[in-house]
Design a protein around this nucleic acid. Structure first.
Ligand SMILES: Nc1ncnc2c1ncn2[C@@H]1O[C@H](COP(=O)(O)OP(=O)(O)OP(=O)(O)O)[C@@H](O)[C@H]1O
Length: 787
DNA sequence: GCCGCGCCCCTTTTT
DNA sequence: GGGGCGCGGC
């Protein structure tokens, strides 16, 4: 078939030898171990495209698993480009948790033994904590002594090791763990009586279902015949077991296609705290002994200086296999190191530098820039400066929006409509807005519900029969019961966005917020939530509710972008923005320009990891992951003082800086920041030139250890950007006025105009229906041309 | 029953 | 810098 060869040529054209081998080895297990930027993810996407377009594999037989939502979205987008929207939509691409949620929901009939029904809800972190707290109270344990966060972490660790409460108690190595095992038991009871699951349950229950129900497993083995796992090094035990079951069946009942392609890099293993372990690679080799192993050695992402620096940091880890990694992209620019006076100045420096990059045209779009940090808390200092400098940015993985009270309240209503036995949500909103059902009435109702073995919802419906509650309380409860029943019946009548409207209006929550000026912002948040719900308007409402709530729980909603001026929330595709992201979430991504901030002892490596050699190695890998995200320019930034929980703390430079040979650094760009640049004196003493010269001499310097190899001055040459660095973008517009287009959210539309602006194409599209006219950047918007 | 104040702890990292 | 929680005043 000649088209085949042509297609094949096209797909294989952008691949090197070993990559081609990986892509065309479509049958049997495949293990790809390779360093960053070597095209592992590219192999997965091209392999999938090859399967579908050259080997005639139907797209619904394809499964691709990622670890973060962002990675799943990126892969979906890459595949849409390679195989087209309609085919890509038929594949299953998602995180383990999302896949498990989908499986469990689909197998609703078999959930009864687990104490769940189809309408189970996935609890977010806060709700999980609330249940732990409840469990502690039920067991008469002191919350001060047994901190919720600690107990929660211990329970989660046990669940990820697939231990039952009983097994956890047996294996307890300290008293706290024994107590946690008791809490675990109660916590599971509470979860189930709420008809709810936590994140760990999703994995464990699916594994259990597949392991015990062989016909069910067989169906999924039939369905997903080509399995791909990205970032395999971060698999934990239940996740690996899922892959094994799907690809090879259980020891007792072998099965599955055996077509399992896993790709990973042990130097990028950064989730061992979540149960990831290098043992999974060994397990894979044991369980799939015939696996073809392919190594990739050429890095296509970064320039040599960046790679060198990254490898110098990770090379200090013991017990790692050295991998060859080279780039043909040339030496490239040197790294830029900057030391700021404090964390505020750190943010200011980054913001300034970004403005300069844009002004000089060294970077065409803000989207080419990412700022990475170790802890989420570090984003605030950056955000403040970005707001001041009017730099649009987006914080990836920020859950802030979904943590707002009004948003949580609305979501609690929605969850209750789906799953009336969600006592947690009912408790939350029974008196929101105020309907005179205070803690006393609620407490009495709960006590009674427990006594009568009713869910809170059923108890509410029958509150007339309550023996002791007074008339006023009963009236209030009855009225609320009717309200809920009425809202529940409107699920059948309304689309999801309209359902949200009805909830807001009928509960009186909307009117209350709109009535006061203070409520205005909160009301606009509810409108924002409604906007997210609009994506589900076309789907049958009860299914839409399920999907919407699942998405909120697992994805934490859209990545939130914020404009400079007014702080309004905008969605990702709406504008060109700088990315703010944790090092963890950045794994698998790449950006032309990367800033890593907080290269301080205590931050990176994090203070909690400093005492343990294993954890310190993980910090090193984290730095490695961060460095290797950069394509052509890498900034390493730190602050000498930092506010920590309010008070000021002096920091020392990260020990990782000392691992980088000084000749890989350029000086700070520009003359005015040269004043701020810092240097190490010959004696290893650290000295700074900006602001003041107060003597902090008693503080120790540079990693604190005199024995540390000391750095000399990073060469103090002026930084000159090379013209080759300016990224090139197409000179001709892709769309013309009159073109018919399809957008994944807004549907069909007609291009009104198209213009090129600093190398990016912007189109104005008139969409059909309520979306109306929109201006989109083609750098972000996914637009398909329609014939 | 509501609200405001002050105290405490908190921070890894993600689903 | 901030969120949760308990206490005390209205
Ligand atoms: N053969 C190739 N020719 C040109 N570009 C390539 C080739 N292989 C990979 N690339 C490019 O290199 C970059 C890195 O690829 P990719 O993200 O797949 O690497 P990776 O191994 O998954 O990296 P990481 O481990 O850091 O996630 C991408 O921009 C990709 O398009």
């Amino acid at each position: 078939m000649p088209e085949h060869t042509e297609l094949e040529q096209e797909l294989l054209a952008g691949l090197n030898g070993p990559q081609r081998e990986a892509v065309t080895t479509t049958e049997g297990p495949l293990l790809i171990l390779a360093g960053p930027g070597s095209g592992k993810t590219r192999v997965i996407t091209h392999r999938i495209a090859y399967l579908v377009r050259c080997r005639g594999v139907r797209p619904w037989h394809i499964l691709a698993v990622t670890f973060t939502n962002k990675a799943a979205r990126e892969m979906q987008e890459r595949l849409e480009k390679l195989v087209g929207l309609s085919e890509a939509r038929e594949m299953y691409i998602g995180t383990f948790h999302a896949i498990c949620a989908r499986v469990l929901r689909a197998e609703a009939d078999l959930l009864a033994p687990f104490g769940l029904t189809r309408s189970f809800v996935i609890l977010d972190t806060d709700d999980q904590a609330a249940l732990i707290k409840q469990a502690l109270r039920d067991l008469d344990l002191d919350e001060k002594q047994y901190r919720v966060s600690l107990i929660h972490a211990l329970i989660s660790r046990a669940k990820n090791a697939m231990l039952s409460p009983y097994q956890m108690a047996e294996q307890a190595r300290r008293y706290t763990e024994e107590v946690a095992a008791r809490v675990y038991r109660r916590y599971q009871q509470l979860l189930r009586s709420n008809n709810s699951v936590d994140f760990d349950d999703l994995l464990m229950l699916t594994e259990q279902l597949w392991r015990t129900e062989s016909e069910v497993l067989a169906r999924y083995q039939q369905r997903w015949q080509y399995i791909h796992v990205d970032e395999f090094q971060d698999c934990n035990v239940p996740q690996y077991k899922l892959i094994r079951l799907l690809g090879r069946g259980s020891y007792e009942r072998p099965g599955g296609s055996g077509n399992v392609c896993v790709v990973g890099d042990d130097d990028q293993m950064i989730y061992s705290w979540r149960g990831a372990s290098a043992e999974n690679v060994q397990a894979f080799e044991r369980d799939f002994p015939e696996a073809r192993i392919i190594l990739l050695e050429q890095n296509y992402r970064s320039t040599q200086h960046i790679l060198d620096a990254a490898q110098c940091v990770v090379r200090r880890n013991t017990a790692r296999k050295e991998k060859r990694l080279w780039t043909a992209l040339g030496q490239g620019e040197k790294l830029i190191y900057h030391e700021a006076y404090n964390d505020e100045a750190e943010g200011l420096y980054v913001a300034d530098e970004i403005l300069k990059l844009l002004a000089r045209g060294e970077v065409a779009h803000r989207g080419e820039i990412a700022v990475m940090y170790r802890t989420n808390a570090q984003s605030r200092a950056l955000e403040e400066q970005f707001l001041r400098a009017n730099i649009p940015y987006k914080v990836i993985g920020s859950r802030k929006f979904y943590e707002r009270k009004e948003v949580k309240d609305m979501l609690a209503y929605l969850r209750l409509l789906l799953n009336p036995h969600d006592d947690l949500s009912l408790q939350r909103i029974i008196n929101v807005p105020n309907r005179k059902i205070g803690p006393k009435s609620l407490g009495e109702l709960q006590r009674w519900a427990r006594e009568e073995q009713l869910s809170l919802y059923d108890a509410l419906q029958r509150s007339e029969d309550h023996p002791t509650l007074g008339r006023a309380a009963k009236n209030a409860l009855q009225q609320f019961a009717h309200l809920l029943a009425e809202l529940r019946s409107s699920v059948a009548e309304l689309r999801l966005p309209e359902l949200l409207d009805r909830v807001a209006e009928r509960t009186g929550y909307g009117p209350e917020l709109r009535a006061s000026p203070e409520g205005e912002e909160r009301w606009s948040n509810i409108l924002e939530l409604r906007r997210v719900a609009e994506d589900y308007a076309e789907i049958e409402t009860s299914l839409a509710l399920e999907l919407f709530l699942e998405n909120v729980a697992l994805v934490g909603g859209a990545d939130v972008a914020q404009t400079g001026e007014d702080g309004t929330l905008l969605h990702e595709e709406d504008q060109d923005a700088v990315t703010l992201i944790t090092l963890h979430a950045a794994k698998g991504l790449e950006f032309p320009v990367v800033f890593i901030v907080g290269l301080d002892e205590g931050i990176l490596p994090h203070g909690r990891s400093i005492d343990s050699p294993e954890q310190l190695e993980e910090e090193r890998r984290l730095a490695y992951v961060g460095f290797t995200r950069a394509m052509r320019r890498l900034y390493l930034v730190r602050a000498r003082r930092r506010s920590y929980f309010g008070d000021v703390v002096y920091t020392e430079p990260s020990r990782f800086l000392a691992d980088i040979p000084p000749d890989l650094f350029a000086s700070s760009p520009g003359s005015e920041s040269r004043r701020q640049s810092s240097t190490w004196e010959r004696g290893g003493r650290y000295e700074s030139y900006d602001h003041d010269h107060e003597d902090y001499g008693s503080r120790r310097v540079y990693g604190g250890a005199a024995s540390r190899p000391r750095r000399s001055v990073p060469a103090d040459t002026t930084f000159t950007p090379s013209s080759a660095d300016v990224s090139s973008t197409p000179a001709a517009p892709r769309f013309q006025p009159g073109d018919r287009v399809l957008h994944h959210l807004f549907g069909q539309g007609i291009v009104l105009k198209s213009e090129l602006e600093s190398g990016s194409e912007f189109v104005e599209v008139q969409f059909q229906g309520k979306h109306g006219k929109k201006r989109l950047s083609l750098d972000y918007a996914r637009l398909e041309r329609l014939p």
